[in-house]
Nucleic acid binder design. Structure first.
Lengths: 249, 249
DNA sequence: ATTGGCCCAATGGTCCAACCAATTTAGGAA
DNA sequence: TTCCTAAATTGGTTGGACCATTGGGCCAAT
């Protein structure tokens, strides 16, 4: 019988050690999201491991969304890195059907409203200026191309989530967005998808700038409601098309 | 001026393709958690890519907890793999401080309120009976041990989430719950943690049984509020203790 | 001054071949 | 059979090479 007191010793794998060293480097150097990390070759030399091992470690961070790699350019920090980080990767079985999309919207309804309210409570003056800037860029893009621009739109929402002071909002909603965008490639036959949500971006901004949580929550809910409407219209459209020529998506 | 119609093209990386092929293989072969995957070398030959690429792909799955590698033995499936999986890596800075715990509660506030409202809209009569049964079991456990029982309490909430008709609620909130409870082992010096939330379980049930979404949302919010209060009390307690004898947690 | 073409160095992505380390398996000795 | 050992298998690591993309610098044409 094995002595039950004995527990497995921690044997650190090579890439664990690399990540640990990388945490030290990032915190010591005070790197923040957007900053560039040393190249893989440099890391390999300094850490005395092969480039393959460095790559394996960076791949793990990439999968956790901590880091982003751009070929020909470099590896960039994507989120704040600290000691004692707690990782909990969550993978959900989710279909590509309308029900699943509707489910992601229900999650967004709960979270975006909450995030908007928290943001309204906590924004600094600099935050407000920054959000307004994103809003203006989104509005410009809207008028230029006569329709919603996914990137600028997402930038605006991201700014709101980040000023909520809770990084979990961004992480969860980002996953919902990704799910949504898998479908957005085919805009469901709805030409002006997202069009209706446009005015609520500014009203949401106004509520946050006024530091009014109640109003911010209300505007966020209105915004999501327009997206839900678009989705329902898309579903109806698709149903009609499918009945006509049996196209399976 | 850039043509607004143009949107970035996206190209699949090699390891994305490997993962995609692996999903096909796993589903076709009907592999379940615990089953052994082909060796890296075999995969490399069959997929016509280098072993390095296979390893990079498997590293990503490993980080997501989908797969476990055992040197000398093989690579084993660790979770169910399906098409269209949605990956949601969650990262908390330091996981065991007051701020991070509060963050998990903010997510729960948004989601549990929404889930309660949806549940009130969608419950069947059988669902209501089932929830009531869980409620009664929780209340019994409460009176028996003169305090909240984590298991029965969680069972009750789980029942509510499940009747919301959206599986995402259960999975995301479960993750928040787990993060929270990694610390809850030490209830922060608060003896009757969760005590105050007790009455709101029944009021929440009543609202759902009455199919009143507004009331259900309100009761869910009250319930979370009591947990937040407990947490704040705990934080205050801890602060006092730390000042007294410099105990570091 | 601006545009476009061109080259070149840097960087991440992929590949190969070999060896190391842990595990499993097969075979032989007791 | 049982136990031990050697060999085969498998993931882990290394070094080196080459490919593909990026970004900056340079220069000629406009």
């Amino acid at each position: 019988m094995i002595n039950p007191i004995l527990s497995p010793v921690h044997t650190y794998s090579r890439d664990d050690a690399v990540l640990q060293a990388l945490v030290e480097f990032v915190t010591d150097e005070g790197l923040i999201p957007g900053d560039r990390l040393p190249t893989e070759r440099v890391l390999a030399v300094h850490l005395k491991v092969s480039r393959t091992t460095v790559r394996e470690a960076l791949t793990r961070w990439q999968e956790l969304g901590l880091v982003e790699r751009r070929q020909g350019s470099g590896t960039y920090l994507k989120a704040a890195v600290t000691r004692n980080m707690l990782h909990m990767p969550l993978t959900l079985a989710s279909g590509n059907d309308f029900k699943s999309l509707m489910h992601t919207l229900e999650i967004r309804r709960g979270l975006e409203a909450e995030a908007a309210a928290l943001s309204a409570e906590r924004v600094s003056n600099e935050d407000i200026a920054m959000i307004e800037q994103k809003l203006i860029r989104m509005e410009e893009a809207f008028h230029e191309r006569h329709g919603m621009s996914a990137d600028e739109d997402w930038d605006f929402h991201l700014a709101v989530f980040r000023t909520s002071g809770n990084p979990l909002f961004e992480q969860i909603i980002a996953a919902m967005y990704e799910m949504f965008h898998r479908f957005w490639e085919h805009p469901l036959g709805v030409r002006d998808f997202g069009h209706a949500s446009f005015p609520y971006h500014r009203t949401l901004y106004n509520a946050i700038a006024a530091r009014d949580p109640i109003a911010a929550r209300a505007e966020a809910l209105k915004l999501i409601a327009t997206v839900e409407d678009d989705l329902k219209r898309g579903a109806a459209n698709l149903k009609k098309q499918t009945q006509k020529n049996r196209v399976q998506i």
